[in-house]
Amino acid sequence: MTPLPLARKATGWFFQPVALGRVAAMRFLAGAFIWVDWWWYMPWILGHRHVPGELYQPLFIARVLPVFPVPNYWIVVGTLVVLLAAATPMMFGYRARLFGWIVAAAYFEWMIIAMSYGKVDHGKFAFLLLLFLLPTMPKAKWGDRTHLSEHVGWGFNLVQIGVVCTYFFAAWAKIRYGGWEWVNSATMTWAIIRRGTEFSTWLLDYPWLLRLSQWGMVGFELLSPVVMFVAAKRLKYGIVAFFYCFHLTVFLAVEISFLPHLVAMACFLPWERVRPRDLIRNLPRAPRLIREKLKARKRIPAPRRPAETAPEAEPAS
């Protein structure tokens, strides 16, 4: 029995092959962010080693799976040591599968420790998906564009779905818990008063513009799944670039960062084209290479139209 055309298209889309070079790049970015996370992005998690156990309110999954002990000094510090020790070889591709599973398990415990005291972030959902899918992928090298894998395409598609779900369900939560007053009230005004910057405080004089931005934010989040179904690569990369610009704007306005989400979203991009050795080698020559490429483009002649054939003479009578 042959599969239906729609099923074939869905299967082909979901398992579209991706070059292995992207796997090596994403492993490096994930490992690098883990070092940034504990040192700069969320250093307060380490402070939970001094928090009394009576304040620990485990997340639902920690209550269902009885494998997460109440954090104390040694559990918090030990989890961090294991996480950093495994992230370093993973990011450089040394036994990436083994250390990848250790990183995924340790970071999951790290998030249980972080989010079981009243604050739960939704910006790390796609990054957690990335950490648990990277160990399932084969060994990879930077810049490998020749070896393609449907399994890698499947894994990165799952991460991309996680990225889109983060946006879509954020809009759904705004409407579910805040109602339409979230977009019609002074939500952004309150946010700027609390944590505004020099780039956003001037907006307080234009409340209509802030309300318009609230509608635009929810509209953008609801329409974010479109990026999954765009076939043209340049258009898809343009949409992803808009996502990054959106987060940059939010950070400049109210200093809210979604750095782990941005790392996971990088799997949309063609990192298999990047070769770190070539970049380092060509860095001193970069200005000259750019000028040569621009000159070469100017020298390409425009396509000429084929000359019109002259009409044949009519035979003499």
Rank of each mutant, 00 (worst) to 15 (best):
W154F: 15
A173V: 08
W180D: 05
F156D: 09
A171M: 09
G155R: 04
G162A: 10
W180H: 08
A170D: 00
R194Q: 14
E198Q: 14
W180R: 09
L131F: 08
W180P: 08
N184P: 05
I193P: 05
W142P: 04
G155S: 15
V163P: 10
Y167T: 08
Y177R: 07
W154H: 09
G143D: 04
P135I: 00
F156R: 09
L133V: 13
P135A: 04
G196Y: 11
L130Q: 11
N184L: 15
A191L: 13
E198G: 12
M137D: 01
S185G: 15
V183P: 07
W182S: 06
N184R: 15
T189E: 15
R176M: 15
L128C: 10
V152D: 05
C165F: 06
A170E: 01
L133H: 12
L133W: 12
A186H: 14
E198W: 13
D144C: 03
L129H: 01
G143F: 04
G143W: 06
G155M: 07
L128S: 08
N157C: 05
I175Q: 03
Q160L: 14
F156I: 01
G178F: 10
G143A: 00
M188C: 11
H147D: 06
L128W: 04
E181F: 03
W190C: 03
R145W: 00
A191Q: 11
G155V: 05
L130I: 10
I192Y: 14
L158I: 12
K174Q: 12
A140T: 07
G179A: 03
T136D: 08
F132M: 08
G153D: 03
E181H: 12
A171N: 03
N157T: 08
A171I: 07
V163D: 14
T197Q: 14
P138E: 04
L131W: 10
F169A: 06
A173T: 06
P138Q: 05
L131R: 06
D144S: 04
V183H: 10
F132R: 03
H147N: 02
V159Y: 04
S149T: 09
